[in-house]
Simulated assay, not measured.
Amino acid sequence: MRLAREHGFDKVTVDMISAEAGVSPRTFFNYFPSKEVAVVGRTPGALPPQLLDTFVAGGPAHPRTVLEELTRAIVDQMAADPPERQEVHDIFMLAHGTPSVFAALMTRFDGFRQSLAAAVAQRMGPDADEGIPDLIATVAMAAVRTGMERWSSDLTTDGSDSPVPYVERSVALLHLLLAPDHTSTRSAP
């Protein structure tokens, strides 16, 4: 990210990154298929196996409960291993201005979503509607991403605080949106 800030992402080469890291380009490619993947490498990619096992062990439940517990697991992991605000801000800013970085970031998020959907499917069992696990994972990721983007763009503090309150706020708004509306007198279609 520092090289991208100094030179512009398009001018940064794998050779420059390798030299800065003190490794050969060949070693770089052992870890990353491209400089785009290297720059988004710290974004969420998976929950730790122990956390996933605990989530799956919760067993079948109403989809709303599964969504609540999945988002709680993501927030718990974020609290245990918080990212750095400036780093996340820089990744989002770079992604918004560089299509290849945006594609790498969306690929990374989609891989995370797929791992979450697999865990939800495992938890809900074979009798669950086949579209529910993917939808739950997609909605959870949308709430997390919204909170992360809000946190990373709020640079009014020293940057040392956690994204957890921002993500929890997004998750709370999501649950509010999904709550039954008892004030409406209209019947559901």
Rank of each mutant, 00 (worst) to 15 (best):
P33C: 04
D76K: 03
S24L: 07
K35M: 09
V23A: 00
E87G: 04
M124E: 12
E68N: 11
A104N: 06
A95Y: 09
R113L: 05
I74D: 01
A118T: 08
A119H: 01
S115P: 03
E69F: 06
F28H: 12
F92M: 13
F29L: 10
P48S: 09
A57W: 04
P60E: 15
T98V: 12
E69Q: 07
A73E: 12
E68P: 03
L116W: 04
G41S: 13
A19M: 09
G97N: 13
D134Q: 00
H62I: 06
R123F: 10
E69C: 05
G111D: 15
N30D: 14
T27M: 10
A104Y: 08
G45M: 09
P49G: 02
A57D: 15
F92Y: 15
E36Q: 10
D15L: 10
A21T: 12
L135M: 15
G45S: 04
Q77W: 12
E84C: 07
A119D: 01
L94E: 06
A119V: 03
E87N: 02
D127N: 02
S34W: 13
A57C: 12
V40A: 10
L67Y: 13
P133G: 12
A73Q: 07
T65R: 11
V120T: 08
D90S: 03
L51T: 01
S24Q: 08
S34F: 12
Y31Q: 12
A118E: 15
A104P: 03
A119M: 02
E87H: 08
I91P: 00
G111V: 05
A80T: 14
K35I: 05
S115N: 09
R123W: 12
L51P: 00
I74P: 00
E69N: 03
G41T: 14
D53Q: 05
A117D: 12
S34Q: 10
D90W: 05
A38W: 13
Y31P: 03
V14H: 06
L135D: 03
G22C: 11
E87T: 14
E130I: 08
G45D: 13
D53K: 00
